[in-house]
Design a protein around this nucleic acid. Structure first.
Length: 230
DNA sequence: TGATGATCATAA
DNA sequence: TTATGATCATCA
């Protein structure tokens, strides 16, 4: 995160209720990135190429996410996770959405009911953003936030995807991004040379490329369209 | 064009 | 080093 964002003079206080959080979202809905940045006297990067997390971090600060740590959702008291979602010119999700890291060591002992992925997705505040590359970053608009919880069907599918992916992780030690209906596992690292090592019980050393869970665009689009909400 | 695999920046 | 925030870039 750029130092600039650290120096923000803002309502650093976390929202105390969902209503308060949504009210804060309304305040920024329909504004441009430049307006937000100007409001807090921040420079806007020319592009996100080398500042991929800039906007996400800025919005966290503006909305009062008491993040910074890993073991809790962005809004700890409310149990809500904040995710920005980039939209293309058609208003559809442009990219898949990163959820969390896959921990290969814990795969075998983790259960769906308790896994971090499920907790993170139990309640999410989606914040759509214009992300068409032809639009200068400064001129992109903030969309209407959606507070979402998975429907029964959505959770069922996520659960099934998760079980399937875990099974293959255990059996083969890795998976392809092609698996999963809503959920997929893809590389997630600074670069492809990054490996983590672990030693098996019989002394073999395995190298892994760090991976993360992602939500497919078809799934996030379903959320945005408001279809299976509530 | 969309999806897969790769990559960027920052913090603790 | 590994987590967070994601988007980039290439290939089919």
């Amino acid at each position: 995160m750029p130092e600039d964002i650290d120096q923000l003079m803002l309502p650093v206080t976390a929202p105390l209720s969902e209503e308060e959080l949504l009210r804060r979202c309304e305040l920024i809905t329909g504004k441009t990135v430049a307006q937000l940045a100007q409001q807090y006297n921040l420079p806007v990067p020319a592009d996100l190429r080398r500042h991929k997390g800039w906007l996400g971090n800025l919005l966290e600060r503006i909305l009062g996410a008491d993040a910074g740590n890993q073991a809790e959702p962005d809004f700890v008291a409310l149990g809500i996770e904040l995710k920005t979602i980039p939209l293309n010119s058609k208003g559809e999700p442009k990219e898949s959405t990163y959820v969390c890291t896959v921990n290969p060591r814990a795969v075998a002992e983790t259960h769906w009911q308790t896994c971090w992925l499920r907790r993170k997705l139990s309640k999410v505040l989606w914040l759509p953003l214009e992300a068409e590359n032809s639009i200068p970053l400064e001129e992109r608009y903030i969309g209407q936030a959606i507070l979402w919880q998975p429907s029964e069907h959505q959770e069922t599918v996520l659960h099934q995807d998760w079980e399937e992916l875990m099974e293959i992780m255990i059996a083969e030690g890795g998976v392809t991004a092609r698996l999963g209906r809503y959920l997929q596992i893809r590389p997630k690292a600074a670069h492809s040379r990054v490996t983590t090592r672990q030693v098996g019980h019989d002394g073999e050393v395995e190298l892994h490329h760090p991976c993360g869970f992602y939500l497919r665009t078809s799934f996030t689009q379903q959320i945005l369209s408001g279809k299976a909400c509530c």
